[in-house]
Design a protein around this nucleic acid. Sequence first.
DNA 1: TTGAAAGCGCTAACAG
DNA 2: CTGTTAGCGCTTTCAA
Lengths: 335, 335
Amino acid sequence: MRSKKRSVTIQDVAKAAGVSVSTVSRVLNGKIDVASETQEHIQAVIERLDYTSSLAARSMRSHSTNLIGLIMPDIEYPYAIEIMKGVNRAIADSEYDLLVYTTGNVQKLAAASHEQRFVALLNNSITDGVIIVAPATPRFVSDSPIVSIDPHHEYPNYPSVHATNYQGAMDAMQYLMSLGHTRIGFISGRSELESAKRRLMGYEDALKEAGIPYDPDLVVPGDFTSKTAAVVSRQLLALPNRPTAIFAGNDQSAMGVYEVAQEMGLRIPEDLSVIGFDNIPDSRYMNLTTVDQFLSEMGSIATKTLIRIIHHETLDNLNVRVETKLVIRGSCAPR
Amino acid sequence: MRSKKRSVTIQDVAKAAGVSVSTVSRVLNGKIDVASETQEHIQAVIERLDYTSSLAARSMRSHSTNLIGLIMPDIEYPYAIEIMKGVNRAIADSEYDLLVYTTGNVQKLAAASHEQRFVALLNNSITDGVIIVAPATPRFVSDSPIVSIDPHHEYPNYPSVHATNYQGAMDAMQYLMSLGHTRIGFISGRSELESAKRRLMGYEDALKEAGIPYDPDLVVPGDFTSKTAAVVSRQLLALPNRPTAIFAGNDQSAMGVYEVAQEMGLRIPEDLSVIGFDNIPDSRYMNLTTVDQFLSEMGSIATKTLIRIIHHETLDNLNVRVETKLVIRGSCAPR
DNA sequence: TTGAAAGCGCTAACAG
DNA sequence: CTGTTAGCGCTTTCAA
């Protein structure tokens, strides 16, 4: 462990081996035009000196690092962790290593201008491409390819992986209706987000398709937090003709409904069917039914797509748009 | 999104603003000696061109990036994730950003030589310091400071954060003995690891202190996996005078014991008390008692220590050795 | 098969 | 206050 300043450089190796830096560089990069004798000698010196080439210097010249970046709003939520797992798995099967970047603070990253800064920070220097999770920014300036997961815009200028929010909501509704439910509450999400918009649309269209009239009282405004969900679901359950099922905007909202149901002594799902969206990360809520978003699969797909783009296997970078399946887990009660 | 080659550089900005690169650099680094007029002008150009300075180039010159690296064997285990959370929290309160590095593959990283490579990769170029989790290597060559968490050696050449394995094992045993248990089984861990060694030592010393003779039949060899633990605990429970309690080497081992107990129709803790070590990540095993290792706290402490070293607030880099508390969670039955 | 030299984008003296 | 210049450590022509 040394203080500052780079300890051993390619210069040192060259000097110690009695050759020029370019020869060392050739050995480093596995070029063939080096006498096998020199080759071995240099290799030995490299090991003796514990030399490792500087990523910064290397990337600066060659513009290729075999590193993929993953930019996360926050590393702590199950949502983020699941995605990371998927990315990680795809990385393991590739020649790339992974660099997860986070500021440890949602606030810092949330600002769109910051997202651009982070993309640039990584992609314009040390990564060959980045995956960005839930970006608020619809367009980025970047030297290397970008793939996004769950962007907050429908048509960003980068390839993206979306969950099939609309279809998932339709499926959830159809499931509830097949059980005989006709009064189904809905807790909406942050309306500026694409996912929230599409879930609401799925709710509405499913009703329409089934010929069930839309009752505005049954749709209450949430914001993807359990706290708000608790407040609005209380309102929902106080209705004279209360819903027999609630389709919560996301997992957190479902948890909010759960708490209120407990409080009111309603059994789930016997007295009230509840379907969440995304994963239900907390086992205390395991009896909740959920439209499960395959987060890790989204991570994998995004990674594979990115690698394909880096390899120039995909010509049309801008229009890749993958959708991942959603599946309903758990069961509600018939009514 | 452009193909290759860095799009907009400090040169471009200088040209567009009609000044020299050094002036731009001064603005970038918030130096005071720039006419506020020029200052604003350059700032405007920077924004207009969407310019971001290259991390690689910057770090190469200034040897400071405000980035801290976290090297993880594998990103998927709850163990790793808990540590990440702690690091993340400490990072959030600091001026640093976090770069988590992983190869997505334990095998790749496990080899000691690779660990050195990763440390060098980050620390000799783009990070101001790294935290390495559970390193197998006792010494690293690195330009910037290193702090390790749970190293596999007792006295590595870098500052480290350890869990108090010995004391934790003592506490667990004393707890069991206070409940009247005298025949206590122990499933050991991978004996090359410091943590495993110290836990076994705690088991032995606790017995000695209590004057309970050591029975070799009660100590069976595990390897920190639930599979092996299941095999050896079956053996333990088949003993003519079977133990009334089992102190499992780690969380995974405890889960193995749990499965076998279920299988044999033994109720936990009424018929068999079981204490694990580390966290029990899976809620299915929530009725297991565990010596809880404050993983996230270890992450935080390591991060804060590292930052202090980077800031030169700690003179003696090599001998920092922090131990974190372990606490017993859950309860066993008296015998 | 090898070396010399140019430069990647940036910062930090040193001059003006 | 601003420009010129010299590298940071590396890869890559181009010559030898």
